[in-house]
């Protein structure tokens, strides 16, 4: 049984232009101790998916799913207070913007300790001790002196470490990191990523690593989910995906990697943007940007079909058996 099992999850927002499905029928399974990478350009519904797992979709949004269970518990039927006992304890999340994700009015020590206080009832010396330990584990130098620091006194990288300390405080079984390095300097990005992967390995927790950077996924993920316009475009093991991508969108994302473009003068980019509320096309959602699109792609929406090594949502996939024979 997967640790997290989500089937046919949709999140719709009611907007002035009508209801908009930011997430449209996605499946997502994560096993205990597994690292799953979710990739896709911005606007493809990665954050909304993770917020739905956390139970943090704002009231303007509706979440529906055929199945949404964590460690065998059906998340859909839990009361709010039952849900809160899981959120922040067994499932925790690190956000994209470390500088704004911490409360400017409270010290770092307080914000880390709060989770421990609320979920584990720690207080006094034990709380302080555990907080310092967490700061050490996320690689913050002189942790004792940092307890009383405010977020604005720390750098972005340090704040993201604090966010990670908050997230791992109660030993979660699943950590969701939503573009944890996007807002950071390139030099810091690698450190934070290494920290996350190290923590995942040491603690054996499952990790959902959300990013729009295929390179990051290549180094860390066991399995990859490629999202496009609120749907899963392709999913398979990381090795398979990098060796033989099937969906043209995955192919284009991989072509855009600098290390794959050696010898070429310019990085190939994907023209156009992810369709938003008003401009979702007929047929395959990717067809306006797809170099391989044919009449069928413009008329019919492909299903997410299983192949020999994973699943892809495409009528004319790359690297497939049929293509080799044709």
């Amino acid at each position: 049984m997967p640790l997290l099992d989500i089937q046919n999850l949709s999140v719709a927002f009611s907007t002035r232009a009508g209801t908009f499905r930011a997430v449209d029928g996605i499946d997502l399974q994560v096993d205990e101790g597994e690292v799953v990478g979710i990739v896709g350009e911005s606007g493809s519904g990665k954050s909304v998916t993770s917020l739905a797992v956390m139970g943090l979709i704002p009231s303007a949004g509706t979440v529906i799913a055929d199945r949404m269970s964590f460690a065998g518990t059906d998340l859909r039927t839990l009361s709010r207070s039952q849900r809160r006992r899981i959120t922040g304890k067994d499932v925790a999340m690190v956000f994209q913007e470390p500088m704004t994700s911490l409360n400017p009015c409270f010290t770092v020590g307080f914000q880390i300790g709060e989770s421990l206080k609320v979920h584990e009832g720690l207080s006094g010396r034990a709380l302080r001790h555990r907080t310092i330990e967490l700061l050490e584990q996320v690689g913050i130098p002189a942790p004792e002196s940092r307890l009383s620091a405010f977020p604005h006194q720390l750098s972005g990288g340090m704040n993201q470490r604090v966010m990670i300390a908050i997230a791992i405080a109660c030993n979660p079984r699943l950590l969701i990191a939503d573009e944890p390095t996007t807002a950071l300097d390139v030099t810091i990005q690698k450190q934070i990523l290494d920290l996350l992967v190290g923590l995942q390995r040491d603690r054996g927790m499952a990790l959902i690593l959300i990013t729009h950077d295929m390179g990051v996924v290549a180094e860390t993920a066991h399995r990859v989910v490629v999202m496009y316009a609120g749907q899963v475009a392709e999913t398979r093991s990381a090795t398979e995906l990098f060796e033989r991508p099937r969906h043209p969108y995955t192919g284009a994302l991989l072509d855009a990697l600098p290390e794959r473009a050696l010898g070429r003068r310019r990085l190939p980019t994907i023209p156009g943007v992810v369709p938003g509320i008003a401009d979702r096309p007929q047929g395959c959602l990717f067809n306006p940007r797809c170099p391989r699109a044919q009449d069928r792609c413009r008329a019919e929406r492909p299903a997410l079909l299983a192949d020999d090594a994973g699943r892809a949502r495409c009528f004319y996939p790359l690297n497939s058996q049929s293509e080799v024979t044709a």
Partner: peptide, 14 residues
């Protein structure tokens, strides 16, 4: 509407 409020909710606070 601030990010840190989302963080607070993500901690499972009431």
């Amino acid at each position: 509407g601030e990010d840190y409020i989302r963080t607070a909710r993500a901690k499972g606070l009431n």
